[in-house]
Simulated scan of single mutants.
Amino acid sequence: MVSRVPGWLLRHRITVEPYLGDSAYGPVYGPPVADVPALVSDTVRLVRAPDGRQVVSSAQVLLGLDAVVPPGSRITLPSGRITTPITVATVDAPGLPVPAHLEVSCE
């Protein structure tokens, strides 16, 4: 059984506008999903993007496994800042006492 991040730890609320694709006018986003429970850390870190480049992440967001954040989505942080994910990773360790969660590194 995989343990999940306890709800009391997800103290912030974010809004996610899922990326649907590109149009002739730019990115297309789905309807906003508001009040998504999260834990937001406004910390500058160097991360590796999916294409291998090293880029700076200015915020990291921990979410429950049921959250849907496709790459390219728009995320509104509790501060009101709008950002996009650089990476979205599922973190789990079956058999270990580590809660499973999604970790999103944002621009």
Rank of each mutant, 00 (worst) to 15 (best):
R45H: 09
V61Q: 03
V88E: 12
R48S: 14
V47Q: 14
D22H: 08
V91T: 10
P99A: 08
P18M: 08
V16Y: 04
L10S: 15
L20W: 03
Y25V: 00
G26Q: 08
P70G: 03
G52M: 10
S57N: 00
H12P: 05
V40T: 06
P31G: 14
V88L: 11
V28G: 01
R48G: 07
T15S: 14
A24F: 09
A67S: 12
P99H: 00
H101D: 00
T15E: 08
P71N: 12
A93V: 09
Y29F: 15
A34I: 06
G7R: 11
A100D: 08
Y29Q: 08
P31Y: 05
E103P: 02
P99E: 07
R11D: 10
D22C: 00
G21M: 12
R13P: 07
V5K: 02
L63N: 00
Q54R: 05
P6L: 02
Q60H: 10
P71I: 13
R45Q: 15
L39E: 04
Q54P: 04
V98M: 11
R74P: 07
I75W: 03
Y25Q: 03
V47W: 06
T87R: 02
I14R: 06
T83Y: 01
P70L: 08
V61I: 14
Y29I: 13
T83R: 13
D22V: 07
V16L: 09
T83K: 04
S73P: 05
A49T: 12
R11G: 11
E17G: 02
A100I: 00
R4C: 10
G26P: 05
Y29P: 03
P18E: 04
S58H: 15
V56N: 00
P70R: 11
R11M: 06
L63V: 07
H12L: 01
V104A: 00
V47G: 12
E17N: 02
S3V: 09
H12K: 02
A38N: 10
H101G: 00
T83M: 06
V44H: 12
C106P: 11
L10C: 08
A49Y: 14
R53V: 07
G30S: 09
T43H: 00
P94L: 02
P31T: 09
S41C: 10
V16C: 06
Y29W: 12
R81P: 06
T90E: 07
V104K: 02
A38M: 05
Q60P: 02
L102H: 01
A100Y: 08
S41Y: 05
Y25L: 07
P50N: 10
L77R: 15
D22T: 03
P27G: 03
P70C: 12
D22Y: 14
R81T: 13
A67I: 05
Q60D: 14
R53T: 11
T84N: 03
L96Y: 10
P85Y: 05
A59Q: 14
G21C: 03
V28D: 13
A100E: 08
D22Q: 13
A100K: 05
C106D: 02
V40E: 13
Y25H: 12
R81D: 14
V104W: 00
V55I: 11
T90H: 11
V40M: 14
G21H: 04
E103A: 13
I14Y: 03
W8S: 14
V69Y: 01
P32Y: 13
V88P: 06
L20E: 15
A89G: 13
T76E: 15
H12D: 15
P32D: 10
T76I: 04
L9I: 10
D51L: 06
D42F: 05
A93F: 04
P71F: 01
G52Q: 01
P37E: 00
R74C: 07
P50I: 04
